[in-house]
């Protein structure tokens, strides 16, 4: 579900400082994958791995045009990741449904 993805996938993907730096770079605009390594002291292979992780988390979109792979931020994911209020609204709604299920599905005797 969306809430789970938000915390587990988005924040895990962004836990790495290099990946955050890539996001910061892409926040300035679309960048070719081959140019993305330039400001960082890491190999093209390492940058590609980070971009793949960000892509898997839905944070970055990689689009191949001709021979060049272009990277850009998936803004809808970023919007959701940054909207904690929206996150907790849906979080508590989920909790209430889950609690209701818990309270009605099991008899009190089964609970310690």
């Amino acid at each position: 579900m969306r809430s789970k993805e938000l915390l587990d996938t988005t924040f895990s993907a962004l836990a790495d400082p290099k990946r955050r730096a890539i996001v910061a770079r892409l926040a300035q605009g679309e960048t070719a994958l081959s140019k993305l390594a330039e400001p960082f002291d890491i190999s093209q292979t390492a940058v590609t791995k980070h971009v793949q992780a960000l892509s898997a988390a839905g944070i970055v979109v990689v689009e191949k045009r001709g021979r060049t792979r272009h990277c850009r931020l998936q803004t809808s994911t970023m919007k959701q990741a940054f909207d904690w209020l929206g996150f907790y609204q849906s979080f508590w709604e989920t909790q209430m449904s889950s609690l209701a299920d818990h309270l009605t599905e099991k008899s009190p005797e089964k609970l310690s």
């Binding site: 809430s3 789970k4 915390l7 989920t94 909790q95 889950s98 299920d101 818990h102 099991k106």
Partner: peptide
């Protein structure tokens, strides 16, 4: 349900 760990583990979180 809010104050016993065994029950929290059943219902709290994004999914059971």
């Amino acid at each position: 349900a809010w104050t016993e760990p065994d029950q929290i583990k059943v219902w709290f979180g994004y999914q059971p």
